[in-house]
């Protein structure tokens, strides 16, 4: 079992590292990640959301629906814990 896990882990790592070979260097400002979608958040956050903290404006506004989902996740987890841990009342 351990050997199998080790093989799987090494394989997974190999694939992941293989992927990094074509990645832009860390900190490179010319990556697609920094150039395609995100510049708008930086440059227009003030006029569109009036929030200087860009993370906040994205979190609460541009991608606010994700945050609703996030809240739902917490709610689910809470309900899940109650459901799981609530003990049966003794009759």
């Amino acid at each position: 079992m351990r050997i199998l896990s080790l093989i799987i882990v090494i394989l997974t790592a190999a694939v992941l590292i293989y992927g990094t070979l074509d990645m832009p260097d860390c900190g490179n400002p010319d990556t697609p990640a920094s150039q395609h979608v995100s510049p708008r958040y930086v440059t227009r956050t003030m006029e569109e959301t009036a929030t200087p903290n860009i993370v906040t404006s994205v979190l609460g506004d541009y991608r606010g629906y994700d945050t609703l989902g996030e809240t739902t996740v917490i709610f689910s987890a809470g309900m899940a814990c109650i459901l799981i841990l609530r003990k049966r009342r003794r009759q």
């Binding site: 992927g19 395609h36 979608v37």
Partner: peptide, 29 residues
């Protein structure tokens, strides 16, 4: 990985960008 290669999370948008970088190893992984 996909975000890194395309800079987008929207499926349609990603689909549009991807054909140009199909050879990228990042995309494959």
């Amino acid at each position: 990985y996909l975000y890194m290669a395309t800079g987008s999370l929207n499926m349609a948008d990603v689909a549009q960008i991807l054909p140009d970088i199909y050879s990228s190893k990042v995309v494959m992984v």
